[in-house]
Design a protein around this nucleic acid. Structure first.
Lengths: 191, 191, 191, 191
DNA sequence: CATGAATGAGCATTCATTCAT
DNA sequence: AATGAATGAATGCTCATTCAT
């Protein structure tokens, strides 16, 4: 009888928004941003096409919001740079935690890699990506420098590339890729 | 003026086909398979749209033929499995040669990575990709096994993933990625 | 706090209705009927979309009610046909008054002209428009006939067309169109 | 058998382009630019939706090309400003010719008036419209100035507005609007 | 061998309207 | 009386593919 309160509306929006974003992550991950159609997303989310535009300005906006929130969550959960210094134990934890999050949000990280290789789409989110990569590489560089290793920058970027490569291989073939064994080797070799 | 011989026709076909494929590799690499349109390719190749379909059954067929020939060329040039055994020197050569080919065919390998992350497109060519990956991993496994290293399979897959990650980072940002320094570290650490 | 009386409800409805119509006139004038969306109107009126449909059956109904009331007001304020006879002084007053009302309700008359040139929309309101045009032309015809001018009908329609053209030019470019000078010339030439 | 020559293709394009523009003029005139859909136009032209975009970049481009060519034709046919001076006979000819062209291209001039009253659409073509209006008003001003009439600018703009109003009334109701009689009165009163 | 006009399904997006609250 | 989430048809536009020449 009485109209819904603002709080009720806010609740509806929050929930529906999450449903749409979850559906979109899956479809984007499977089809890439360009290959995914808004229809596929709304069908998976169980809503009409029009409604998506009640929540997001455009397909691009939808992608950006997904990436923004995903990266923010990643940064928050995984604040490696608390004090800017990495011990060997923290290094191991850092590798461990990366793979834990990878497994937890498989779709999101598939989407991440599909974006990286597509310059046209990358421009939409690269500023946000840099928010992770910058501090990440800096912390690693400091770590290797503190250990007295020559060319810490190259070591840092190598480890970054290694984590990319391992993640990508795992995402493409999660069943047979021996990620746990590989994790141990990485920690052993790069610690 | 005189009617062209069959041999001449064949020659023309071969050359035109190569022109189209080269144009397609560039466009696919820049826009990904889904983002590239046939029009972009024919425009870059300087031919009509109809002619492309005289040489290729479809956009998918074009991609497949590009991948097939690219991989075949790669395997031929880069026969890692000559005798099935890798010495330490050969290992260094192998790393070196991988990066040399990467730099030589930047467009092709960009295309390669954009395909890997897109399941829909991956199915078109994954059998061919396995033709490299299988022997490649086998040779590495044998190498590590011969050295008496525990879990040679994990080491082989790790190195494969590492090469993927480094290659991808280089392709995304060829200017500032320190590939030469990294190459040395890889050889040193994984030899 | 105390339950509102029926009279208060009626008052609220009347005011809200006026607010919506005023907003709609502005948006229609600026964007035309086809170019204006219901969202634009409700946003300008500061109400929800649902509420508009509480007051009007449809976008078309909203337009019709605007036109109906606007024309009725015009006829009431501007009763050219008081006694059916026009003196020369009354003629001058009539021209004068027309332009005064034009300036007063710029949005309404912009809407009027945008409707006239769009047959699909015109059918919705043309009967109402005729309620002005008929007596208006009749009075002018009588005026010219009484002056003994040949072809009074053509003179009447010419003056009608002239007023249309001058009004339209003024509405399109109110700043530089010399409406006061033109008014004098009209009175002088057509009196 | 042999492929079509470039000349043949050019011929096809020219003819099809004309068919599309003619269909578009009619639909735009009847529905206005905003109210006309590309589907309506292609249906009337008897072609597929895609083909329209082989000939025009967008709906806006289509409108612009229609207006550009229509105005150019008008200027060419009707070069009132040959020597910049208007005699009384030329003035009569000018009025006459205007109405002749109006009757000849009814759809085009309906479109013209529907554009004038819609600012959003007007911006697409107003530069082109000014190519007519500027010289047109200048010539008229010179004419009235040469006759020693006070305020020639107001007279020029009044006649311009009058021609607009008469044209518009004729286009809205070509059957009963006495355009021939009115033409004579105009020539008589404004010569 | 070669052209490019032509198609039609599909794309992202908009919008008048409905309805549960 | 009032809200705004929700719908679905329609919009302007793109694109892989076909085909007459």
């Amino acid at each position: 009888m009485s109209p819904r309160t603002k709080k009720q509306f806010k609740e509806i929006r929050k929930e529906k928004r999450a449903i749409i974003m979850e559906a979109a992550i899956e479809v984007f991950a499977e089809k890439t941003f360009m290959g995914a159609s808004v229809s596929m997303i709304t069908k998976k989310a169980g809503i009409s096409k029009g409604l998506l535009y009640n929540y997001f300005d455009s397909k691009e906006d939808l992608l950006q919001q997904i990436i923004f929130e995903g990266i923010d969550e990643f940064i928050q959960v995984f604040d490696v740079n608390k004090d800017g210094v990495l011990t060997e134990d923290e290094f191991a934890y850092f590798i461990d935690e990366t793979f834990r999050l990878l497994k937890k949000d498989i779709h999101f990280w598939k989407l991440y890699f599909s974006i990286i290789v597509q310059p046209d789409v990358m421009v939409l989110v690269q500023d946000k990506f840099m928010e992770i990569l910058g501090p990440f590489l800096q912390t690693l560089m400091d770590y290797y420098e503190a250990k007295g290793i020559a060319n810490p920058m190259a070591h840092a970027r190598l480890l970054g590339a290694l984590m990319d490569g391992v993640s990508m291989n795992y995402l493409v073939d999660p069943v047979s890729f021996p990620i746990e064994d590989i994790k141990k080797i990485i920690i052993d070799k790069f610690k």
